[in-house]
Amino acid sequence: MEALEQQEKSLEGSRESGRDRPANRPPSRKRFGPYLVTFLIMFFLWILLSGKFDPFHLTLGVISCAIVSFFSGDLLFDSPRMKGFPRSWWRFLLYSPWLLYQIFLANLHVLFLTFHPKMLDLIDPQIFRFRSKLRGDLALVTFANSITLTPGTITIYVSVDGDFSVHAIDQQSKQGLPGEMEIRIARAFSEG
């Protein structure tokens, strides 16, 4: 029963967060931003994967990328979120070196645990929960993936309104959460 209620709540939450109903959108305005960005990303991948620069192959690439981005351009980005897109992309690029450094430090910690002869006394696996302040879907997914990539912690479950269940391998990994990572992600997606 409780699970059912929770499911209902999360459904409601997702209904509230779905801001871009087709009915709400003015039908006369067409948005080309998502299509253009999808087309550019796919054309870059086409050039990278084919490696041929003669006009025939480039024309084929333009035609097929245009067809695919016409059909599925609104899958990759929601239209309202396109407003802050270049800035948040840039901030995410600034965030990723810090993430890499954290992943490296935490990897060294797990490496130390793995080769320690008395490992079974050191580790203390447990599942704990916390509530995050982040709201946007993209920010939540980034936060969950960052938690999973930092060794010592794995995200088990994320609900729409930001309830995290995390499996931590010892006390030291547990203490780092939610902490600085959440603040930096909130800054990157301008939800601060």
């Binding site: 797990v110 490496l111 793995t114 490992m119 930092t150 060794p151 391998i169």
Partner: peptide
């Protein structure tokens, strides 16, 4: 570290820690 961790850790959840992430690194 990933391969030894898969063998040494005591249960399924803790085996995931070295398996997925140290292989990524």
């Amino acid at each position: 570290g990933g391969a030894v961790g898969i063998l040494r850790f005591p249960d399924f959840y803790s085996r995931l820690h070295p398996a997925g992430k140290m292989d990524t690194m």
